[in-house]
Structures are given as C-alpha cells and as structure tokens.
C-alpha cells in the first residue's frame, strides 16, 4: 500500500501547489459559513437550536458540486497528457494508482471539513449540544464525500476531457443526491422501496440525525468499492 500513499501525497501536494486547494477551502467555508450563521431565515440563530443540522444540509450540496471539481482532473488529465503511461509502468498496480488518487481527494475533503470544527466549538457555547449527533453528522459527510469521490474518479477514468469528467460526475451524482428520492416518492411497493434504498440523501439524513446503522455504512461502502472497482477496470483497458 506504500505506493498508493506516495501517489496520494503527490496529488495532495499538487492541490496545494496549484492553489486549487485554497480556492476550494475558501469557497466551501464561505458558502457553508454564510448559510449556517448569517443567512437569517433558516440559520442557527433563527432556529435557536445548538446543532449543526443547517451546516450538514448545506455541506451536502456544496460537496456535491465541489467534489467533481476535485476529481475531474485526477485521471482525465493524466490520460490526456500521457503521464498515465509513465505512472503505470512504474512499480505500482492499477489498483494502487486508483487508491492513491481516492485517498488524496478524501484527505483534501477531510482537511476542508476539519476547518469547520470551530463551528462545533462555537455552538457548544450557545447551548446544550448533542455531541454524538455532531460527530455522526461529520461521519455522514465523510461517507457521502467518499461515495462522490469514487463516482468522480470513475467519471474521470473514462474520458480524457476534464469538463466531460466534471459534468459526467455531476449527472451520475444527481441521481444519488436527488432523483432516486424523487422517483421513490412517486412509486409505491417494491420499486418505491428500491429507489428509496438507492437514494444517498436518505442514508445521509439518517446518519446526520445521529443514527449510525450498519445498513447505511454498507450502502456508502458499496458505492465506494463499486466506483473504485469500475475506475480500475477502466484504466486497465488500454
């Protein structure tokens, strides 16, 4: 697993070197900060509850858009410039390359989310906080990010064009984020159940309410494993 870690470190350095990292962090904090604390209607002061549900709801959407921007470059650019050939002829397996790329994006998101911990500290001064719910909310965000990263990597692995990779990741993501839930709402019986199970938002909400169910964990991990597996297959075709 060492090669995967070496790749992850390089990718992470590349984010911080090219200022993409700072740009993403600043934008993410501005969006989530504004809606959590300043938006007026619907913010924490309006709700008068010492929890971070507002933040989790906003972060769910911000990450939905930001993660494809992080992942689009990962494999598409390497394919376009040909560096993928150099990378894959080094002493690494296809799987280690994919894992390394995944890890770098995941760490990038984790660093961004870690910078919102002052929100948590702030609300502990504002009222009685359900600490378990906060931590499981963060866990939910990390799981959701992992799922979208693996979808984004898959999108990036099947094209040499970053814009295509970005849009493709969004269009796959929108089903999990939103459309499966809508479809499930219009159906009854088994099909309704099925789509409601597929909906990422449903699983995310139950975790962000503080209920950590193995079913939800398995759901997120399945998306991650499937996405990474398909990416691996995609780069092994050459």
């Amino acid at each position: 697993m060492k090669p995967a870690w070496i790749i992850a470190k390089r990718e992470l350095n590349a984010y911080f070197d090219s200022l993409i990292a700072y740009f993403i962090i600043v934008l993410f904090l501005s969006f989530s900060g504004f809606f959590t604390w300043l938006a007026g209607n619907g913010d924490i002061f309006f709700r008068k509850q010492a929890d971070l549900n507002v933040f989790f709801g906003v972060a769910k959407w911000t990450l939905f858009f930001f993660i494809p921007a992080l992942t689009m470059r990962q494999l598409a650019e390497e394919k376009k410039t040909g560096t993928i050939e150099l990378l894959l002829t080094k002493a690494v397996t296809d799987r280690q390359v994919i894992l390394g790329k995944f890890l770098s994006c995941f760490l990038m998101v984790a660093i961004t989310l870690a910078l919102t911990l002052p929100y948590y500290i702030t609300i502990t001064y504002l009222g009685k906080v359900d600490h378990g719910a906060i931590w499981s909310g963060y866990l939910g965000l990390l799981l959701l990010s992992a799922a979208y990263i693996s979808i984004g990597l898959f999108a990036s692995s099947i094209t040499g064009n970053q814009i295509v990779a970005f849009l493709l990741a969004l269009s796959i993501g929108i089903f999990f984020q939103f459309l499966f839930e809508v479809i499930a709402g219009g159906m009854t019986g088994f099909i309704g159940e099925l789509f409601s199970t597929l909906s990422l938002s449903m699983h995310f909400e139950s975790i962000s309410r503080g209920v950590i169910d193995t079913k939800d964990l398995i759901y997120f991990l399945s998306i991650v494993v499937l996405g990474l597996y398909l990416s691996e297959i995609s780069i092994s075709k050459r």
Binding site: R10, A14, D17, G82, T83, L86, T89, K90, A91, V92
Partner: peptide, 18 residues
Amino acid sequence: LKKQIGYLPENNPLYLDM
C-alpha cells in the same frame, strides 16, 4: 519486473507543475 525497467516513453510525458 517493473522495478527492473526504466522507461522513457515517446513524447516524454511529465508532471509539468512539479
């Protein structure tokens, strides 16, 4: 065997930002 091979591809692709 990958560790035993050094390879310079055609067109010499490199990570230009590094």
